[in-house]
Computed example of a mutant assay.
Amino acid sequence: MTNVGTTSSPELLLAPLMARIRARDEDAFRELYDLTQARVTRVVAATTRSPEHSAEVVQEVYLYVWLNAATFDAVQGSVYAWLLMLARRRAVDRVRHVVRSNLRDQRDAAESDRDVPDVADLGVARHEAGRLRAALERLTTVQRDAVVLTFIDGHTHEQAARLLSVPVGTLKTRVRAGVLSLRQHLAAPAA
């Protein structure tokens, strides 16, 4: 009988504190914090595994309690259950945020490394672009239009055929002939 009374006694203390906290009683809030913070901190620390993040999450939990004490419903569960649920959710949210942030930082770092082109690569790219422009100029107008629409502008064969007002088969023939001609021009040694 004594065990039952001692296990529920913290909860018997907490429920009236919540009613006083709803009425903005700061002493009740301090008392609730003193009675529960060790358990809340353990739950948060087990999830975040970071003292800095744990301290911030515990602070967020108790700020939420102060601002939203009216949302606590004793019918739904005990004060401890409510606090620990808040603590777990906030801790998991923090871990997810940190993981997403780290992944974003890694991706941004990788992209910034790739974004800096080598000067030699730029020279080669300009030279190749010039050769491609010259090879495109050697195509017939209908071949050039078909190649540009499908390969450079990114239209599907159907879209390009509609734009040029030709059957899809005709467009494909023009693209094939244009690409073959481009290969021949580009395969020739640069002068």
Rank of each mutant, 00 (worst) to 15 (best):
S181E: 11
A28M: 02
R42S: 14
R133T: 11
T156C: 04
V4R: 13
L103V: 04
L171Y: 03
D115S: 07
D153L: 08
S54T: 15
S9N: 13
Q76T: 11
D34G: 14
V43G: 06
R89C: 02
H97G: 14
V166R: 11
A15L: 09
R90K: 14
V116W: 02
W82G: 00
V166I: 15
R107H: 06
E56L: 08
A45W: 03
R96W: 00
R89F: 04
V99L: 04
Q106Y: 02
V65H: 03
V75D: 15
T48C: 12
H185Q: 13
V57C: 06
A120S: 15
I21T: 01
R24W: 02
D27G: 07
V65R: 06
A134E: 11
L13V: 01
L182M: 13
M85E: 11
N102H: 07
L136P: 06
D34Y: 07
L67N: 14
V79A: 03
R114V: 09
R24D: 12
A109M: 02
D108Y: 01
D93F: 00
R162L: 11
A87G: 09
A134Q: 11
A190F: 04
L84H: 01
L139V: 09
E31D: 10
Q76D: 13
T36K: 01
V43W: 04
R49G: 12
G178Q: 07
T47V: 14
L132Y: 11
L67G: 12
